[in-house]
């Protein structure tokens, strides 16, 4: 379990002081994957370095399993860091060491005997599915395999917290999926608290239990992933699962954005809505999936001119939120997502 208490980081002094992180407060429980997402320059890497104490927070604290790590001396920090495993972006493996030698690094620093190191390294490589590649050098491994080695190395000292800064950035979708699956498996098997930092919304959907959005050093929104996706007023929820590019509605139709807000939306809600309103429903865009065991989704539909209040009411009975789009606002969700990426 790890918690941040009013964590603030300022670089520089006096006139040139820049507050990169301001009053961050959140905690990651054992067995939880907490994602921090935000655009480039938001302060994500700074947050990562404050958490594994490569940078000292200016104020506030980092507490791991009840121990406040921000007050420790340099030598005490070295010991404390063992409770936090860090997975770095793709450039983290030493080029002149094999996969096994890279995994052995933290054990070697700690002074573990060669026999014990060998045993533990074999176990870790097996854990991440790379036993057959133990004697490969980093340049002989794929991006996904290199990250697996990085994860094995981060786990070498049996940390209770795993910190990952852009560990899947730059990987192809398939490797990303295999890394996120591995992280979930490790979370379940080892009860790790995982702080997963990324700029990719897609990856957050795959991996997170909870998510916080970091923007210019502030946490602007946070919550359980499923709750955010079900909350029609959540900007982060919308950014995570943008409404797809919809077809134009037909002549004499209005476009409506529908969002799943309850746990019990019937699978045949399109038919049910059509019957309730006694009009045909055109499906213009839809995305429905199961995330962390819960169904979430959104859709854009076209309806002939119906009574607005009645439509919203009928949708609500099905566990949906309906919002009518004025003409020309069909792709509003998309536009929001684009401005997101430009930021």
């Amino acid at each position: 379990m790890i918690s941040l208490e009013r964590l603030t980081k300022v670089y520089g002094h006096g006139d040139r002081a820049v507050t990169v992180l301001q009053d961050l407060d959140f905690s990651v429980d054992a067995g939880e994957i907490f994602a921090v997402v935000g655009p480039s320059g938001a302060g994500k890497s700074t947050l990562a370095q404050c958490v594994n104490l490569l940078e000292r927070p200016t104020s506030g604290s980092v507490v791991v399993n009840g121990e406040n790590l921000s007050q420790l001396s340099e030598a005490q920090l070295r010991v404390a860091r063992r409770t936090i495993g860090t997975v770095f972006q793709s450039d983290g493996l030493f080029s002149r060491r094999t996969a096994a030698q890279n995994v052995a690094l933290p054990l070697q620093y700690l002074g573990v005997t060669p026999a014990e190191t060998k045993r533990r390294v074999a176990e870790l490589l097996d854990r991440v599915g790379l036993s057959p590649r133990a004697s490969y050098y980093p340049h002989q491994l794929s991006g996904g395999q290199r990250q697996r080695v990085g994860i094995a190395r981060a786990l070498a000292l049996r940390p209770s917290v795993l910190l990952s800064d852009e560990a899947t950035s730059g990987l192809d979708p398939e490797s990303t999926a295999s890394i996120t699956a591995l992280l979930k498996e490790l979370r379940d098997d080892l009860g790790l608290s995982i702080l997963f930092i990324t700029h990719e919304m897609e990856t957050v959907l795959q991996v997170a239990d909870s998510v916080a959005r970091l923007d210019r050093g502030h946490i602007v929104e946070s919550g359980r992933l499923v709750d955010l996706l079900r909350d029609p007023s959540s900007e982060l929820g919308l950014a995570l699962k943008p409404v797809g590019n919809a077809r134009e509605s037909g002549a004499g139709e209005n476009s409506w954005v529908i969002q799943y807000t309850s746990t019990s939306v019937p699978t045949n809600w399109v038919t049910a809505l059509s019957e309730a309103l006694a009009v045909p429903v055109s499906l213009l865009a839809a995305s429905i999936e199961t995330i962390n065991g819960a169904t979430v989704g959104n859709a854009t539909i076209g309806l002939p001119h119906t009574d607005e209040a009645e439509t919203i009411e009928a949708a609500a009975r099905l566990g949906l939120t309906a919002r009518r789009l004025s003409a020309g606002r069909v792709n509003a969700g998309k536009a929001l997502e684009n401005s997101e990426q430009a930021a």
């Binding site: 070295r78 063992r82 770095f88 972006q89 030493f94 690094l105 933290p106 620093y109 190395r153 000292l157």
Partner: peptide
């Protein structure tokens, strides 16, 4: 970045 890796791995 290697120095950061080594520090995070507990190196003196």
């Amino acid at each position: 970045s290697f120095v950061r890796v080594a520090k995070a791995s507990g190196g003196s």
